[in-house]
Simulated assay, not measured.
Amino acid sequence: MRPLVIGANGQIGRQLISQLPLSGHHCTAMVRSNDQFQQLEERGIAAVRASLSDSVEHLTKIMQGHDSVIFTAGSGAKTGADQTLLIDLDGAVKAMEASTQAGIEHFVMVSAIGAHRRERWNEALKAYYVAKHYADKELIRSGLNYTIVRPGRLSNEPASGKVLVASDICQEGSIARADVAAVICTVLGDKRFYAHSFDLLAGRDNIQQALEAIL
């Protein structure tokens, strides 16, 4: 696949642009600043400069030549609820609209564990969960081939290659960002995982086994 990684300068995004080529995917990193763009070019990584504040028409042009989109952008913990809604919700929906117009084959969304169930939302992060909940619902309604990955608390631990995958995981837990990226690399372009949404934590099964168990 040739994915466009939206949010490529984020912590999961940086893992993805390192891992995707190793999985046979020829990715393009979407970043906002000239400095980020130049750093990626120096590393030999294809990149484009664009922002989720750009128009749907511009995002559609950026997506030309790609067959998939990975949305791992986020406003960040230090921004207010307004930016969370603009990036995590409206930015995601704009990316979906552009993907539809660009004929994207597969849209992978990085969401948050429990985002699909209001009773599980963290009160301190309610705006974030609202954004993720409705972005995910809009993706399901969009008509795009989608996969929604809902990871638990994220860590910078080394990849373990061992995960727990299920449509609902009610326990607390964490997962390394490197393992989230590895899961995305595995499902990308695999039609068996189209129209699938799942929670994701560190676990005991290797990634392929854990994913195949939900099919």
Rank of each mutant, 00 (worst) to 15 (best):
P3E: 04
N9P: 03
N9K: 04
G10E: 04
Q15F: 02
L16Y: 07
S18R: 14
P21F: 00
H25L: 01
H25K: 03
C27R: 03
T28G: 01
S33V: 06
Q36I: 00
F37V: 00
L40I: 07
G44L: 01
I45A: 04
A46H: 13
A46I: 00
V48P: 02
R49A: 11
A50P: 08
S51N: 14
S53V: 03
S55W: 05
V56A: 03
V56G: 07
H58P: 02
L59T: 10
L59S: 07
L59C: 05
K61M: 00
K61Q: 14
I62S: 08
I62F: 01
M63D: 04
M63N: 08
H66Q: 05
G74T: 13
G74Q: 07
S75C: 04
A77F: 10
A77Y: 12
A77M: 09
K78N: 15
G80A: 10
G80P: 10
T84H: 13
L85P: 05
L86E: 15
I87W: 03
I87M: 05
D88G: 10
D88V: 06
L89H: 13
A92M: 02
K94D: 06
A95C: 10
A98P: 06
A98V: 02
Q101T: 11
A102P: 07
I104V: 12
H116N: 13
R117I: 05
W121S: 06
K126Q: 11
K126M: 06
A127L: 00
A127W: 04
A127V: 07
A131H: 09
D136I: 02
K137N: 14
I140M: 12
I140K: 14
S142K: 05
L144I: 05
N145S: 15
V149F: 08
P151Y: 03
G152S: 11
R153F: 11
N156Q: 13
E157T: 12
P158L: 01
A159R: 12
K162F: 06
V165M: 09
A166K: 12
D168A: 10
C170Y: 15
Q171T: 15
Q171W: 04
E172Q: 13
I175S: 05
A176Y: 01
A176G: 09
A178E: 13
D179E: 08
A182Y: 07
C185V: 03
C185E: 14
T186D: 13
T186Y: 11
L188I: 11
K191A: 13
R192Y: 10
F193P: 08
Y194M: 00
A195S: 15
F198D: 09
L200W: 07
L201G: 05
L201W: 08
A202L: 01
D205P: 09
N206P: 12
I207R: 12
Q208H: 15
Q209W: 04
E212M: 10
A213N: 15
